[in-house]
Design a protein around this nucleic acid. Sequence first.
DNA 1: ACTAATTTTGTAACGCTTACAATTAAGTTA
DNA 2: TAACTTAATTGTAAGCGTTACAAAATTAGT
Lengths: 128, 128
Amino acid sequence: MMHRNGLRPSAQRIAVLSFVANCRTHPSADEIYSRLSGKFPSLSRTTVYNSLHALTDASLLRELEIESGNMRYDFKPQPAHGHFVCRKCGKIFDTPLPRSLADSLTPGFCIDCVEIVYRGLCDICNKQ
Amino acid sequence: MMHRNGLRPSAQRIAVLSFVANCRTHPSADEIYSRLSGKFPSLSRTTVYNSLHALTDASLLRELEIESGNMRYDFKPQPAHGHFVCRKCGKIFDTPLPRSLADSLTPGFCIDCVEIVYRGLCDICNKQ
DNA sequence: ACTAATTTTGTAACGCTTACAATTAAGTTA
DNA sequence: TAACTTAATTGTAAGCGTTACAAAATTAGT
């Protein structure tokens, strides 16, 4: 994957990418750093940020502006989806995209991507 | 409006609220501060943040997590709408919401609000 | 006018992110 | 393999938006 985009697949970058890809929580840079510094004792925060930027530029990751002051990351090759943020437990759930999203846009506009964030209570918190 | 929510309508708060309400650009805290410090020479950044928080808590403003590291503000009493961010000129356009947004959500979830951000090229930048 | 409560203000600090230079590692050529 | 070139990693320091806090100023009610 990285070779195709002229990215050198270093051990750190592989670790960052596969962690985000296998992690269901859309982790932040700091979460990634904390979880990986066990395997890479010399890991630097800067490396995590560098990797995240490189992988984002290569369209392997997507940045989620879901939480103020904390960028979160998503594995991009997955099918497009929205996100639901529970205001109580803070968990983030993937949601399917509603059909006909582009319907309501002015003609002449060119859409690169659509970001949908629902906020509310998840089913578990809603019961309590 | 503020009285109804137990908010004291100070001159600064009125200025912040009416500036956001009449400003089509969804301004950031810093933009608000810059534009208002002419009328209020002693205005403090903290006051702007305080006012924005108070007005947000009172549901008169809405926070937009559109731009990383820069919260933007929207006048809430307007009908619900999405936002289109042009990747070239950076302008933010209001867009109508697509119908049946809640369709795709898991039952049991309670939706407080939906945020939709389109990214791409606006009609003017698209022509160039 | 007096008191009590709220708001504004300025400074300092916080947290996430970036800039930068030095070190290390990885590819390339001979 | 050895020398060379390029790219990635690391640590420190700085940047930026935001928040915490205490003092001063303003407002509201008696």
